[in-house]
Design a protein around this nucleic acid. Structure first.
Lengths: 236, 236
DNA sequence: GTGCAAAATATCGTATACAATCTTGCCATC
DNA sequence: GATGGCAAGATTGTATACGATATTTTGCAC
């Protein structure tokens, strides 16, 4: 039964099955539909996506490399549960690399890029004015997109990939420890950073970026949140 | 050949067999025993290590995440052949992150750490005085270990892992484009950096680090020399 | 009733098997 | 003789099967 359905919708849709599953799970993790610590059984994941354990395992392995999933030998895979120390290291890493990325991006930025950044800013502001879980998730994502776009503009694909990992893990940390009402404080700072870049005040832009990251980290609050089941997270 | 030995120690020594294979292949790539562009057939890799394609595939997949192997859909896996542009990005990334890592390391460094660094330096010098391919490989590895140790001392495991990737890919680039006689110039610079850290002259240490990375890159001959790969040579 | 031990169960680790896709070489046709 | 298509082989993509290990349950003794 699965072969017919799969042949229609799952297999021929895109590149490879494992990457699709990986992306789907990553999105679920980043958007907090999957809570840290949730067990991701290979069997369950495979059944959920109508694929075999082979692909489920490959997807989990990939996510483990990105730091979003932790696999324990003979025990299983779990959504990463970053410790406060790990969270600190994530933001420390961001403070370390983002000023440099910003400088490289500023050196190559075009008017089109600036327009794109401002577009992201508008979207972010729109989401910020909305209420509810969906808007909050989208806001976290939009906030990350600002930083990812800077990395993209910088032209260094290696740093871009690293930032993607850092932003994803940051989202996980924010979903875990963030105080929901406070995460919006970064919005205006994004705008300030763009303005500083436009004004060619790079040192100030870097300082703003550092403060911005520090502000995000300062808004964290260590508190446990209850997990959402694997099946519920994907059943729409 | 070593199936019996592997069967005995493989299970309890490392987490999983795939990681052992991954490490073995990575070492072979970094030490230039495997040339860029070499095809890594899943079957061949599996036979070589006396494991099934499952583990071979997992190992190749992991290496592709690290940028040391490129897998092409339905075509196979190949040892990565970094382009000059990619090489520039690697060193650009290192210039971006290593001064920051150095500062963090300097803030936490202990006398034991300094002793360890000096030990690495001695080993590096010893290898530098030797001739031959083996010494050259070991020298590349030792040179990388200096930077990796700094990342270790910094205490940020995320940056440490990123540096491991950057160093491994740098070794690949050096093996490809490096002018063999010139790679030893970095040795004294390593010592200078340690001295600057000991003297608490952080700004100077960072400057030395930047110059050091730039020197390594300057020693590269970044022209296209794609004689080995049969297909890539004509596509680009 | 409590605690330990051993079997039963579930899950992961690895190997093998089958299907899909690409490559290669041959042959028919123009 | 050149070209295009078709078939055979090779390689990857995915699924299933079997063995190993951890967890849970059950049963017995105290």
């Amino acid at each position: 039964m699965k072969s017919a359905a799969k042949a229609q919708q799952a297999d021929d849709s895109a590149e490879t099955g494992a990457q699709q599953i990986r992306d789907a799970i990553r999105e679920a993790i980043v958007e907090r539909r999957l809570s840290p610590g949730t067990k991701l059984s290979e069997n369950d994941v495979g059944n959920l996506f109508n694929v075999s354990r082979t692909l489920a395992r490959a997807a989990l392995q990939a996510l483990s490399y990105e730091g979003l999933v932790s696999v324990e030998k003979n025990r299983g895979a779990f959504v990463a549960y970053p410790s406060p120390e790990e969270a600190r290291q994530i933001f420390s890493a961001r403070r370390l690399v983002e000023p440099g990325i910003l400088r490289e991006a500023a050196a190559r930025i075009t008017p089109d890029d600036i327009a794109h950044l401002r577009q992201l800013l508008l979207e972010e502001g729109r989401l910020m004015s909305e209420r509810g879980q969906t808007a909050r998730r989208a806001e976290i994502k939009a906030s990350g997109d600002f930083h990812l776009t800077l990395a993209l503009i910088s032209g260094n694909s290696i740093m871009q990939r690293f930032m993607e990992e850092l932003v994803a893990r940051s989202s996980l940390v924010i979903a875990l420890y963030g105080q929901s009402t406070a995460s919006s404080c970064g919005h205006s700072e994004h705008g300030d950073i763009i303005s500083a870049i436009e004004a060619n005040e790079l040192d100030r832009a870097c300082q703003l970026m550092l403060h911005h990251i520090t502000h995000i980290e300062a808004d964290l609050d260590l508190r446990e949140r209850k997990s959402l089941g694997l099946k519920e997270a994907f059943e729409l």
